[in-house]
């Protein structure tokens, strides 16, 4: 591919580490985030929030460099014309109405009162919160509070939106709406980095993910590439069959399948294998031969993103 056609990264981190005293928050992370929607996945305490704070310029790397939209972010306030951040914490000026709050914040971007008012109304409408715009934030539900946070992040129409756990605490309907919004913004050309510790949430927004754990990026890229990575990890395969014990014996008799553990469930055997490709091939041959009775179902939780995550963070 022509180098000129490669889109410039929206975030680039080079050997970034962050320590909080003796505690390490991020450990020698080098990563390039391309334009589009990117999911940052990791369990609580993995380093997601530290990464988010570093790429939003709230923290300075202890080591390494971070650029956002091609510029250093630390002590570079002008970059916030192009970056919108929705933090994780449920913190507000509770006595202000949603409209007052969003308007006051976007005024800090240099907008006039009239422009700020219009922009705030647009942003609140975008998150479906205009009906409650005149209510005090203190009276908002959890879902409304999340949405007003997102409104302040997108009110100045940034190129890059950074959303830290935006679905946290939302009800299922709010969740669905927010996921739809994020996908729409992505389609509209915005770059979005969204963090979550729940994979199916991210899965529903994007296939481009960064997996983070213990302060390190474990994997990055398209979910299908990451899927390849998990072949180096043990797979769990569920085989529902007419005679599960006979099938289990066959697996154990063939060490090349690298069966590491096995347990029985009603009408099925659940196998953990280190060589999933070879294992799947054997099961296919066994089913085709008919010697082991019928094999009704072969499924693997590895086929969904949740399993990718679980494998890689182990």
């Amino acid at each position: 591919m022509d180098a000129a056609a490669i889109p410039a990264p929206i975030v680039a981190a080079e050997h970034v580490s962050k320590w909080y005293g003796q505690v390490i928050g991020l450990n020698d992370v080098s990563v390039v985030v391309p334009p589009g929607v990117t999911g940052l996945l990791g369990p609580n305490g993995a380093g997601k929030s530290t990464f988010m704070k570093l790429i939003t310029g709230q923290l300075k790397p202890s080591k390494g460099t971070i650029t956002v939209l091609g510029e250093p972010i630390w002590r570079n306030p002008k970059i916030y014309f192009h970056v919108g951040f929705c933090p994780e914490q449920d913190a507000f000026y509770e006595r202000m109405t949603g409209l007052e709050w969003v308007r006051a914040l976007v005024r800090l971007n240099g907008l006039t009162d009239k422009e700020a008012d219009e922009a705030a109304q647009r942003a609140l409408a975008a998150v479906d919160l205009m009906e409650a715009a005149g209510k005090k934030i203190g009276a908002y539900s959890k879902g409304m509070r999340q949405r007003v946070k997102m409104a302040q992040a997108l009110v100045h129409d940034p190129k890059l939106l950074i959303l830290d756990e935006p679905l946290s605490g939302m009800d299922p309907i709010g969740r669905r709406k927010t996921i739809r919004l994020i996908r729409e913004w992505g389609r509209a050309g915005k770059s979005i980095i969204v963090s979550s510790h729940i994979l199916h949430e991210i899965e529903s927004m994007t296939s481009n993910i960064l997996l983070i754990n213990n302060g390190r990026i474990l994997a990055e890229g398209d979910v299908h590439h990451i899927r390849d990575l998990i072949d180096t990890h043990p797979h769990t395969v569920y085989v529902r069959a007419q005679d599960p014990r006979r099938i289990a014996r066959e697996f154990l008799d063939n060490p090349e399948d690298d069966v590491r553990s096995m347990r029985f469930e009603p009408g099925a055997v659940v196998v953990e294998t280190g060589k999933p490709d070879a294992f799947y091939a054997r099961v296919t041959r066994m089913a085709a031969s008919g010697e082991f009775g019928t094999i009704d179902e072969v499924t693997s939780p590895d086929d969904n993103l949740q399993a990718v995550f679980q494998y890689l963070v182990k």
Partner: peptide
């Protein structure tokens, strides 16, 4: 302490 500083420090104005 109220964790609202983030909203002010992620705007295009000097801290």
């Amino acid at each position: 302490e109220d964790k609202t500083i983030t909203y002010l420090f992620t705007r295009p104005i000097p801290k």
